[in-house]
Design a protein around this nucleic acid. Sequence first.
RNA 1: AGAUCCGUAGCUCAGCCUGGUUAGAGCACUACACUGAUAAUGUAGGGGUCCCCAGUUCAAAUCUGGGCGGGUCUACCA
Length: 1120
Amino acid sequence: MLDRYREYKQLNLSEIGTEILQKWGETHAFEQSITLRDGAPAFVFYEGPPSANGMPGIHHVISRTLKDLVCRYKTMQGFQVNRKGGWDTHGLPVELGVEKELGITKEDIGKKISVADYNKKCKEVVMRYKDKWDDITQKMGYWVDLDNPYITFTNDYIETLWWCLSELYKKGLLYESVSIQPYSPAAGTGLSSHELNQPGTYKDVKDTSATVLFKLQDKDKIGLQEIKSDVFLMAWTTTPWTLPSNLGLSVGAHIDYVLVKTYNPYTFELQYVVLAKSLLHAYFKEEVQNSDFENYQPGDKLIPWQMIKQFKGNELEGLRYEQLLPTEASSIEEIHKITPGADPFKIVVADFVTTQDGTGIVHTAPAFGADDFKAGKKNNLGILTLVDKEGKFIDGMGEWSGRYVKDYKDDPHYTDVNIDICVQLKKEGRAFKVEKYEHNYPHCWRTDKPIIYYPLDAWFIKTTAAKERMIELNNTINWKPASTGTGRFGNWLENMVDWNLSRSRFWGTPLPIWRTEDGSEEICIGSVAALNEEIKKAAIALGGDTNKNYLHDGILDLHKPYVDDIILVSKQGKPMKRVADLIDVWFDSGAMPYAQWHYPFENKDSFKNAFPADFIAEGVDQTRGWFYTLHVLATLLFDSVAYKTVVSNGLVLDKNGNKMSKRLGNVVDPFETIEKYGPDATRWYLVTNASPWDSLKFNVEGIKEAQRKFFGTLYNTYQFFVLYANVDGFTCKESYIPIEERPELDQWILSSLNSLVKEVTDNFDKYEPTQAGRAMETFVDEQLSNWYVRLCRRRFWKGEYAHDKISAYQTLYECLETLSKTMAPIAPFFADWLFNNLNDVTAKSPLSSVHHTHFPTPIAEAINTGLEKRMKLAQDASSLILSLRKKVNIKVRQPLQKVFIPALDKEMAENIRMIEEIIKTETNIKEVEILDADNDFIRKKAKANFKTLGKKLGSRMKWAAEKISLFNNAEIEEVQKGGYILNNDEIAAGAEPILLNEEDLDIITDEIPGFEIATNGSLTIALDITLSHQLLMEGAAREFVNRVQNIRKDKDFELTDHIRVEILENDGIQNFIIEFKDYICGEILADSLEFVPHLSNGTSIEVNNNSLTINVTKNSKHGN
RNA sequence: AGAUCCGUAGCUCAGCCUGGUUAGAGCACUACACUGAUAAUGUAGGGGUCCCCAGUUCAAAUCUGGGCGGGUCUACCA
């Protein structure tokens, strides 16, 4: 315990950061913050695991500040908040990094480097920056358990994932199916969406596009019997190589289609074609509509056309057409071999069809597009994959067989098969338009070759089975901001598709499914124990070397390649091998509520007590990532939400609003920022500058501002407090003076303080930390520092250490201490520093950290809104008086006699009376005269109250406002008495009378003849600026005091030093010194003040343009 | 393409839900003042097509519709 409060030379937030951090380490403050809450209700928080294979950036600081402040707040509210850290360690980014580092590609894995060595490397790399992460975590003040984190690559973690998968499997929610995925024929591998989002993968390319004609077979069904020529359906494609695989045509149910009579531009034959009405202009020229068909000559540029009939899309549904490019490989027999019972070559209705471009009829090849696949499945179109995995046409396609659909091999003799296809179609009269078309198309980032969409086997979780339930549960989640939950997330749920889990990679959680070669039998393993048992079973059943390396200790590493070594045995006694897939890393993180506890194998209670989470927070980019996968797994496995509240924070942009990226070189190094400005100012800025979900334009100037404006002011207030508290020995040992026994100013600041506590609590509870922080800023700046302290300064350094002074100390102490608590969640270091600086002297709290204390609760009895309103009035009045002084150039030090304040009503008069003392001292005025409402001194003016009158008057509002603005005092008084009729002159003509009430007017002071006035709303100030001789003398005395104080300061006297003052005699201007001698001596702590005829070493000072020579010396005889 | 957030002073943001009179704050800039809190503070000044258009209304920054611009996410399609 200290006997003096610590005093500082200047504020150094960075130093406070390091100092407090060290203290936290020594006292295990974080651990204590949890153990101290043993037995308290839990507040459950989940840490979204970052990946430690990259450096932390400033955007990590924002989301972690958010998480931390909520956890700290809840801890202070009495909850026990366990915070288990975690690391996301699997996945593609890790693998890509390793490949780059080793200079290999995916194909080399298993060849140039063994899978075991490759995965070993991945494991090394994945924690590469863990130290940096731990470091930033500490330095930014993020309290999270770094000693026992969950790590997704551990066996325990994976085992839980297997358990989850097997549960899903048991429920029939895990299935294998073909899906259409981006695939690179050049690289021979499927690509993840992540890979597709690498910079530069989407390129503008020119492809041969074709508008082709499908011959309608049953035109009779839509009443076209009388048309003798063929009727064609027009469809457009940018990938003609998919046309042989066409199995359907998709139309939009509500799109208007038209039948058009025209000539084919290539064969010049008369044709009837069908396309969307709104796309006519893309194919036909307006000026030749209905023009002369008879005189058309083959080769004419302008081709006549005529609209014959119109249909809705759904009228076309089910119509059949002839296969466009029949080949051996695509005969109906072949189709039935692949998909028995398929019913292709018909028109189907699909919702993805638009009239943006093309013809409004979409060529549908189920193998080569996700939408096509969906439409094919829904309508039983079958599937034809006439292209192999190398990207060339398969056998049985005549001259096209063996030809690559794109130039994948950089073959100098490559000829584009797409063009050949178009040529053939032109010849057959099945092409309507062939042209180069420039569009944006994805490319394989590794080979730079265009990708195709291709059907691949994949494992899925049947999320669609629980769609309704997931939507229902989502409605119970508190989303911040709400729009993300209903919009981005809700929408996503509405359009949910099954979750494709498969990844053909190496470093990840293996799918624990083994199956026989013919696929007839399979097993899904749900635990290591089960696997080991199966290993042994298979070894016995299959004999030989089966699983020989895994018989003793079982399996030791659940990754590839070890799991792939293992062969299990089926019920029928057949060997089973593991399916090749790894699972999506998002499954890893989505299962963290269970896997972090190794549930259900261990820690069943820990899990039960920590599920679901009360709160999680991550960047908005996780909405369809982590937020989604948590939600899916909780719903499917436990029919529960995974989290009750989720805050999605926005992005951190650079100060110009650009996304931060290494490429642009605009990334902000969080280490440097925290080092330079301290963690608190950084956190404060991030929290208060913009709501968490708004994107933040990061600008260090903002941090500097927080530093100066908020922390600087609070620090000054603290310094002020300790300056005097140390002098007077205030240590809170006196008994607490009841609030009602304190001066009004104290009551006021305590009322404001408690209002603040209430506001801050409300906002923290609503997960609105920005509002909470801003409220604290306003309080510290406007109320505590610039009003309370300013007005109370004298109370601290003048007078006896008695009731009034102690009251002031107790009040200011309470403000500072309470603030240290309310700000603790956002600025944990400074708050603890402040708290301990106070508490180390007073020992009011037995706790060693502010973070262990309880968050203040607002004391309702301390809140006096009337008082707060009055004080606002005092502030406004003082501000007006100061502005008037400024206007007439009379400094505050010069006392003035009187100010007039007109009161518009009794209440206002009463309020002014109650604050007149404050106004007087604050503005150095002797008298406040309140002018009653009915005085005839001031001239009043009225303004219409638009709110009340607008409703009554409607369109006559303008007229009334005009009239009211011309009212004189008498008319206004009439209105106030009641019964004033605005349209007296119209009554005779039979108009309804318009009756004005007092509430219909806003009364303001117009002017006070003969005075300088200033107004602000309904408040008016009139200042008497007459300077009497007496006032001038007093002003001079104050001026003199000021000069002496400056001398004291220059001479480095202590505050408490008493002095002697000698003044060189100077006739004429010394009167004020004689007259105000007592006042002056009291102010400057002078034991003597004497005029002397001679002064050898005096200082020259100036008082109101007169020179005086004085000598100030310390009076050593006077004890302190 | 869909969803979502944002657009108010040179910059960062309030206000918008619940329409009302002269649209605010801080920073920056300029001038003046203050000076036992002083690398603090006060007062004043300049600075605005409240992104645009239309509608509703006596009245729109605020409500409705349609655009535009920027960010993000998802999708990528003939």
